[in-house]
Design a protein around this nucleic acid. Structure first.
Length: 265
DNA sequence: GCTTGGACCTGATTGC
DNA sequence: TGCAATCAGGTCCAAG
């Protein structure tokens, strides 16, 4: 989409998770998408109109690209038309379709120059792969926190863009118990944690993400990182390090997978 | 002020 | 086989 004009937009329902912003179609049709970027799990497409098209995949959202004669993302149109909610017809012939069965995703518009005031971004912590994110940062961010480290890492105001899978994996790699209170973890452990968080994310990106059921890469192919899970979704299976069974518990309503033997710190 | 739990919505899987 | 209950990658908001 980058560098191309959005010729036409078709919204097939009036809302996703939230209603589309007022005059959504008119505000983006004819605009050129000058730059596609990202903040946490939000896609940010800057438009020639001065507004940014903000898009979130929720849990089951996906974009598929078809119709283009060229381009590495071309693949056949989706088979699940029932959940094709938004279609972008791009300059050059590409059709970019947003499909989201569970409709937890959404689209929004915000002034490009003031993106930091977009409500979800306003209180957001640093990107885990940025220089700002470090052991020293975690020491500050966790100071006095009485919430379990698992919940603290899922908190987007602490660090932006980590989800349940990668938090479980990073804690396992760091040898830190998910129930340990964030404020009670030693500084050297937080240094390790910051390194492992970054490594997990970078490795998952290289592997093309994690396909559990719905997730696909932009070309429709499955991700591969799920084969690298050491604890996530492995309840009862042998720990890759000590062979004891992986355990599951629920924290803040989310499943946590961990090895009680390896994660004691 | 901080933390937790329920809600949002649909589909896949599990258990009776 | 059929149906109901449960669970899922994220985020928001009300209640505690």
């Amino acid at each position: 989409m980058e560098g191309k004009r959005i010729l036409r937009v078709e919204t097939r329902r009036k809302d996703l998770r939230f209603p589309f912003p007022e005059n959504f179609n008119q505000r983006i049709e004819g605009a050129k998408l000058t730059r596609m970027g990202r903040r946490a799990k939000y896609l940010v497409g800057e438009l020639s109109t001065g507004e940014a098209l903000i898009m979130h995949l929720g849990m089951t959202g996906r974009f598929t690209v078809s119709g283009a004669r060229h381009g590495k993302f071309h693949h056949a149109a989706g088979e699940d038309e029932k959940h094709d909610h938004v279609v972008f017809e791009m300059q050059g012939g590409a059709r970019v379709v947003f499909n989201d069965a569970r409709r937890f995703g959404f689209m929004d518009l915000w002034t490009s120059e003031a993106l930091q005031t977009y409500p979800p971004f306003a209180e957001m912590g640093p990107e885990p792969i940025s220089n700002e994110f470090s052991g020293a940062y975690l020491v500050e961010a966790f100071k006095g926190k009485k919430t379990p480290v698992k919940s603290a890492l899922l908190d987007q105001s602490v660090v932006a863009g980590l989800g349940n899978i990668y938090v479980c994996e990073a804690l396992f790699r760091s040898g830190i118990s998910p129930v340990k209170l964030a404020g009670a973890i030693r500084k050297d452990r937080l240094e390790t944690l910051s390194v492992e968080v970054r490594k997990v994310i970078e490795e998952a990106i290289v592997a093309g993400g994690s396909s559990i059921s719905d997730f696909r890469q932009s070309d429709g192919e499955l991700g591969y990182f799920q084969h690298s899970f050491q604890v996530y979704d492995r309840e009862g299976e042998a720990c890759v390090v000590c062979a004891k069974p992986v355990k599951r518990l629920v924290q803040s309503g989310r499943s946590t997978f961990y090895c009680a033997s390896c994660q004691r710190a």
